[in-house]
Design a protein around this nucleic acid. Structure first.
Length: 478
RNA sequence: GGGGUAGUAGGGUAGCCUGGUCCAUCCUAGAGCGUUUGGGACGCUUUGACGGCGGUUCGAAUCCGCCCUACCCCA
């Protein structure tokens, strides 16, 4: 293992590994000269495309995609008091048109409630219009004051999926929250990312929500990353923006609403969860190149091998796979490392020896070499890609389980957190005790009501005050 | 929010305290030519930078001021 294989830091040093792999694997260029704004390289953008295709396909089951403007007039933005308080320090304002000061300042959306809901008020007339379920995938702007990080903490979120639904009753909206959580679970399952869903404490809910359900993943260093939220907005916004409808009895009622968001943090999680010391490992569903063919061309057999590789590529593309053939003038080994860094799940090596045997060497990015028959190659590739997905999923689950534990005292909690774990404790749900937990451990209460096969919801007594408590997740967060 | 350290070519460093054309230098960086190719090939030629703006000076990577950015620590 002393091959000085380039300088990608070990994944054990997660922070360096993460920064390094973003440019080495050509995902994001961080050199754009504005803080908190980063550039998608074409390869990173291709990953984004496949990931967001998954997301769109799920949402399109019962939402419709739409598109609202980026600019929000000040008076609309300022309508909902809690919402303003939550965002006022983070809003970019457009104050001039050319050299002329604007009479009404325009906010760059930090999120789109205040752009969308005035229109919802116009669109909603009758109970027959309900439910309304729309989403958009847009950029949003937040003037982050904390340290920015590519894909994780941004001043321009480039890929914000926000869903906004409207319902006749609070209970229907709650059912929608649950449904959207199942969509989220399915989305992350397709990316082999284990998630933990919990109910955020009141002080950490979305500004203007009745409650917030959050989706977290555990990063390699044990810190949690919030990679999705679903909010029950109740009637907060419908009262502010007059989103009303005439019910069956002819009465005007306020609607109940939900909103739901997923950003490019899902790609940060994808990269972080699966990558290793050699680079990215992409689940096939998200990989811009699912299989790369490396022809081993030596001497006289050059033409034969290239022709066979070309045929193999065409057969696989015809079968629906995303395939590239690497004919660059490089040594094979260099190509292997190059594609491994970029996370390509399957490498197919085709040389004279394989050709003679009617076979091709298949090397999984998750490790393992097998020969497969050229005659049945499309079926074999389907099978092998399935095995790779499964291997990635299992490894991520093992990682997540190993970073979770249940503890019963403050000292044990502190110790667990310092080991890089997320801990389940019992907490009485009072803010005072919550503050004690957060301050003593320098960590955050993620939430209660955990929904996860990795967490058992044990009842117990609050580790601060000793009163009856509920299972609560505590972790260090990004 | 408070503090610290640092920005030199694609990447990594030296030079700065004690201004002087400066050949800077290393690499798995770029361009070109040739020999190579079953796990990161090699030779030769060559390109390219002092985070930004302003100041001091005959002269600034170096001294001064402001700004921008990155990383680390503490609340």
């Amino acid at each position: 293992m002393d091959d000085d294989t380039g300088t990608l830091p070990q994944k054990g040093n997660f922070s360096e590994w993460y920064n390094d792999i973003l440019w080495r694997a050509e995902i994001m260029d961080v050199r754009y000269p504005v803080k908190g704004l980063y550039v998608w390289y074409p390869y990173g953008f291709a990953i984004r495309k496949h990931v967001y295709t998954q997301l769109r396909n799920l949402l399109d089951r019962d939402h419709e995609e739409t598109l609202f403007p980026l600019l929000i007039p000040e008076q609309e933005f300022m309508k909902e008091a809690e919402h303003i308080k939550g965002f006022e320090d983070e809003v970019y304002w457009v104050t001039h048109g050319g050299t002329t000061p604007l009479e009404v300042k325009l906010a760059l959306r930090p999120t789109s409630e205040t752009a969308i809901y005035p229109m919802y008020a116009l669109w909603l007339r009758s109970h027959a219009d309900l439910p309304m379920k729309y989403y958009q995938i847009v950029n949003t702007f937040r003037y982050e004051t904390k340290q920015t990080r590519p894909l994780i903490r941004l001043r321009e979120i480039t890929s914000f999926m926000e869903s906004h639904t409207v319902h006749a009753t609070w209970d229907e909206a709650e059912a929608q929250v649950e449904y959207e959580l199942t969509l989220t679970r399915e989305f992350y399952d397709s990316l082999c990312i284990p998630i933990i869903i919990s109910k955020r404490p009141d002080w950490d809910k979305f500004p203007g929500a009745d409650y917030t359900m959050a989706v977290d993943a555990i990063m390699p260093n044990g810190k949690t990353l919030q990679i999705g939220t679903v909010h029950h907005l109740g009637e907060h916004f419908s009262k502010t923006f007059s989103i009303t409808f005439e019910d069956k009895n002819g009465e005007q009622k306020f609607a109940s609403q939900t909103c739901y968001g997923i950003s490019e943090r899902c790609i940060a999680a994808l990269i972080s969860m699966h990558g290793d010391d050699k680079g990215l490992i992409l689940p096939p569903v998200s990989a811009p190149v699912q299989a790369v063919i490396v022809p081993i061309t030596i001497g006289k057999r050059h033409e034969d091998v290239l022709a066979a590789a070309e045929k193999l590529k065409n057969d696989l593309i015809a079968a629906g796979f995303r395939v590239k053939i690497d004919t660059r003038d490089m040594r094979p080994g260099a190509k292997y490392y190059w594609w491994e860094l970029r996370g390509v799940p399957l490498r197919l090596e085709l040389g004279p020896r394989d050709l003679d045997a009617g076979k091709v060497m298949a090397v999984k990015r998750t490790g393992e070499k097998t020969q497969i028959e050229l005659a049945t190659v499309t079926d074999e590739v389907t099978r092998v890609l399935g095995e790779i997905t499964e291997a990635i999923r299992v490894r991520a689950e093992v990682h997540t389980k190993s970073h979770l534990c249940t503890v019963a005292s403050m000292d044990a909690l502190d110790a667990a957190l310092n080991e890089g774990k997320v801990a389940v404790v019992s907490w009485c749900q009072h803010k005072g005790c919550g503050d004690v937990i957060e301050e003593k451990t320098n960590a955050s209460i993620l939430g209660t009501n955990a929904r996860s096969q990795y967490v058992s919801a044990t009842e117990g007594i609050c580790i601060v005050c000793g009163k009856p408590g509920k299972a609560t997740l505590v972790g260090r967060t990004y």
